[in-house]
């Protein structure tokens, strides 16, 4: 589910980065208010590392022969609370981005939102917790975790589709993309939900106090108006998206896409049909590319320009390769010449 830089436009990536940064900053503020803040940090760090380790354990899905691993958003939120869980997941995603190239630097905002903000700040307080308010029996924990994981994966997958579509890099139609992503993530969600349920039931049986404390005692959880958080996030998205698209449109040589995309964002929230219109309009304009293969060159032949462009491209690659090769050979030689 990690999105890559290459499929994002700067406006969408930038806006989502701002949203996720705001959500994280809010979480930090909430945690700092807690008396146990200092003690919570090692727990959060180790739990983040736990998610990493747990993702490496493959389980075999019975009767299919395939295997999967857990994602961990809901699991962490249930164990240590929504805000600390968001910070842990963000740390994990940054490490995955930097050290495994899983998702990109610009795409971090999207990834943190889809896999962190959605399960920890939206699904956990709105779906998971209400279900467990009146008693925490085995069946209730199981049902709540399966439902919460499925909902957060569906929302996350929808986020991926929406963000990719708004960026306009892939030509995949919105509906097709949606029909590919949602069922796949429904299957993944059910499997992950069952595992999450099993883990939480086990932990609750052996050490009930861990979950009890995140539900009842924790000062962090009390009096957090979820509505305010969501409003702030929405405002930040609109502001940053708007600012970025204004900035983009002031370029003369056409970052036209950004305007189209951001117009798409606003339309979407207003009306689905308008969005469809905007999307098709944007599709039509995108078919007139900057890179004009058919354009006739000064000497009159379009093919000539194309071939020249290709040869130019190949030469650039060769030049870059040669420069890199030259530098490394030079470095090796110098090392060989002066044995330190």
């Amino acid at each position: 589910m990690h999105m890559a830089d290459a499929l994002l436009s700067p406006a969408v990536g930038g806006a989502m980065c701002a949203v996720s940064a705001a959500a994280n900053a809010y979480a930090v503020k909430k945690i700092k208010k807690d008396d146990l803040c200092e003690k919570k940090i090692p727990v959060m760090g180790v739990m983040g590392a736990f998610v990493f380790a747990a993702q490496m354990i493959n389980f075999t899905i019975p009767a299919t022969g395939s295997s999967g691993h857990i994602g961990g958003g809901i699991l962490l939120a249930a164990m240590i609370g929504g805000f600390p869980a968001l910070l842990s997941i963000s740390a994990v995603l940054i490490i995955q981005c930097l050290f495994f190239a899983d998702g990109g630097l610009l795409a971090l905002g999207c990834n943190i939102f889809n896999m962190g903000v959605i399960p920890c700040l939206i699904v956990c307080p709105l779906v998971f917790k209400p279900l467990l308010k009146n008693g925490r029996q085995w069946g209730r924990i199981a049902a709540a975790s399966i439902l919460a994981v499925v909902v957060s994966l569906q929302l996350g997958a929808f986020g991926v589709v929406l963000e990719t579509r708004l960026s306009g890099i892939t030509a995949l139609p919105f509906g097709t993309f949606l029909f590919l992503m949602q069922p796949i993530h429904l299957a993944i969600g059910v499997a992950e939900g069952i595992i999450t349920a099993a883990v939480l039931c086990f932990v609750y049986k052996i050490r009930p106090e861990i979950m009890e404390s995140t539900f009842d005692g924790a000062a962090i959880q009390n009096g957090v108006p979820m509505r305010n958080v969501l409003i702030v996030l929405a405002v930040v998205t609109l502001l940053v998206g708007g600012a970025l698209s204004l900035f983009a449109s002031s370029y003369p040589d056409g970052l036209e896409w950004a305007v189209g995309k951001t117009a798409g964002v606003e339309e979407l929230e207003a009306d689905g049909a308008v969005f469809k219109g905007a999307a098709s309009l944007q599709e039509a304009t995108a078919l007139m590319p900057d890179y004009d293969f058919k354009d006739a060159g000064e000497d009159g032949s379009g093919i000539g320009t194309t071939v020249a462009g290709m040869v130019g491209g190949v030469l650039t690659f060769v030049l870059a390769g040669a420069a890199a090769f030259g530098i490394s050979t030079f470095k090796k030689k110098r090392k060989g010449a002066s044995p330190a």
Partner: peptide, 29 residues
């Protein structure tokens, strides 16, 4: 010599890892 963890053992397996992590976090702190 099973290559993955069976689905039915996954709860106690990951749960065990989780509890160990929790205890370790306490000791680390």
């Amino acid at each position: 010599g099973a290559s993955g963890i069976g689905m039915k053992d996954m709860g106690s397996f990951v749960g065990q890892l989780l509890l160990r992590s929790f205890d370790r976090a306490d000791r680390v702190y």
